[in-house]
C-alpha cells in the first residue's frame, strides 16, 4: 500500500509550468469545476461541523432548555461550571483515564506488534484475534463486560474468587469500576494501534537489522538503536491520535457499562456533557462545558502541531 511512499508527494514541475501557460478561460473553467466539486462537502462541513464549533462557544453564554427556550445569561454557565464539583470530578476522572490509558496502550500495542511481526505458525490467527475486538460496537462491548463482571456469577468475578479476591464488586466500587473502564478501553483499541505499529515496523528496511547482526548487536541493542529511532514518527502519531481519541472517547462504553457510576466514578467529561444536555435538559450548561473541552483540545493539538511544525501532516504543493 502507500505506506512506504514518502509523506510529501510533489506535483511534477513540468505539469505545473504547462498549466500556467494555459490561457485564462481554461483557468476559469478549472476554478469553476473546483468550486462545484467542493460544494457538497464544503456546505455539509460548514453546517454540520464548523457551525456547531462556533455555536459551542456561543451557546455557552445562553440558557437553553430542551424546548428551545433561549435567553442570554452572560458567563453564568461558566461561573456555574467553575463552582460545580461534579465538573471538576469528571475532569479529574478524564485526566486519570487519559494519563493511564495512553501510555499503557502505547506499550501494549507496541509489544503486540513486535510479537506478531515475528514468524511462527498461527501468527495470522494471533494478529486477527488481537484486532477483532476493535470491530465490535462499544455498546456490545459494554454489555458483554457487564455480564463478565456481574457480582459472584460473572466469569471474571468467579475467576477473582478462585484466586482469593472474592467479594470484590468490580463495577460496584468506584476505583475498580474506573479500572475496568481502563482495561476494557485498552482491550478493544490495542489491535488498532498494533496495526499502526506493525506497519511502522514493516517499513524499517530489514537490511538495517542484518547489518546490525553482522556487527554482533543483540536483540535489545537492535531494538534500541534501530527500532526505536526509526519508529519515532509512528510513535508520535500514536501518542497524538490516541491522546485525543481517549480524551473524547469512552462515552458509548460508559453508557453501556456503568452509566457513569458508581458514585459518578466513571463519569468521563464527555458523559458529563451528555448527561447535562440529554438527561437533565441543561443544553446551555452542557455547551459551556463542551466549549471548554473544545478549547482544551485545540490548545493541545495546536501545541502538538507547533512542536512538529505541522510538517508531517500538510502536503503543501509548492
Amino acid at each position: 500500500m502507500t505506506t512506504t511512499d514518502p509523506p510529501v508527494t510533489r506535483t511534477p514541475r513540468l505539469a505545473r509550468t504547462a498549466g500556467r501557460a494555459v490561457e485564462s478561460p481554461m483557468r476559469r473553467r478549472e476554478r469553476r469545476a473546483a468550486f462545484l466539486f467542493l460544494l457538497p462537502d464544503s456546505l455539509g462541513l460548514l453546517v454540520f461541523v464548523a457551525l456547531p464549533m462556533v455555536l459551542a462557544i456561543v451557546l455557552g453564554f445562553f440558557s437553553l432548555d430542551g424546548f428551545g427556550h433561549l435567553s442570554f445569561i452572560g458567563v453564568d454557565n461558566y461561573l456555574r461550571m467553575v463552582g460545580d464539583p461534579q465538573f471538576w470530578l469528571s475532569l479529574r476522572i478524564t485526566a486519570i483515564y487519559v494519563v493511564v490509558v495512553v501510555p499503557v496502550m502505547f506499550v501494549v500495542s507496541l509489544a503486540l506488534a513486535l510479537l506478531v511481526k515475528q514468524r511462527f505458525p498461527g501468527v495470522g490467527f494471533v494478529r486477527s484475534a488481537l484486532f477483532v475486538p476493535y470491530v465490535i460496537s462499544l455498546v456490545v462491548v459494554g454489555l458483554v463486560w457487564q455480564f463478565l463482571l456481574i457480582d459472584k456469577v460473572g466469569v471474571i468475578s468467579r475467576a477473582l474468587e478462585a484466586v482469593g479476591l472474592g467479594g470484590i464488586s468490580v463495577l460496584g466500587s468506584p476505583n475498580t469500576a474506573l479500572a475496568a473502564v481502563v482495561v476494557i478501553t485498552i482491550w478493544f483499541q490495542m489491535g488498532y494501534y498494533m496495526i499502526i505499529f506493525l506497519a511502522g515496523l514493516q517499513d524499517i528496511p530489514s537490511e538495517f537489522y542484518d547489518a546490525a547482526r553482522v556487527d554482533g548487536a543483540g536483540p535489545w541493542q537492535q531494538f534500541r538503536t534501530i527500532t526505536i529511532p526509526l519508529l519515532a514518527p509512528t510513535s508520535f502519531f500514536v501518542l497524538l491520535t490516541s491522546s485525543i481519541a481517549v480524551a473524547t472517547g469512552g462515552l458509548d462504553l460508559v453508557y453501556a457499562l456503568t452509566k457513569g457510576g458508581p458514585a459518578s466514578s466513571t463519569t468521563l467529561i464527555v458523559y458529563f456533557i451528555y448527561e447535562q444536555a440529554f438527561l437533565f435538559g441543561e443544553y446551555g450548561y452542557a455547551a459551556a462545558v463542551g466549549s471548554t473541552l473544545l478549547v482544551l483540545l485545540l490548545l493541545w493539538s495546536g501545541l502538538m502541531f507547533a512542536v512538529t511544525r505541522g510538517g508531517r501532516f500538510s502536503n503543501v504543493d509548492d
Binding site: 454540520f48 456547531p52 455555536l55 437553553l64 481519541a245 451528555y274 443544553y283 463542551g290 473541552l293 473544545l294
Partner: peptide, 15 residues
Amino acid sequence: LVSLPVVMVPTFVVV
C-alpha cells in the same frame, strides 16, 4: 480535530 462527543450539543441544536 473535533469529534462528535465534544460538539454534540450544538450539532443537536443545528439539526
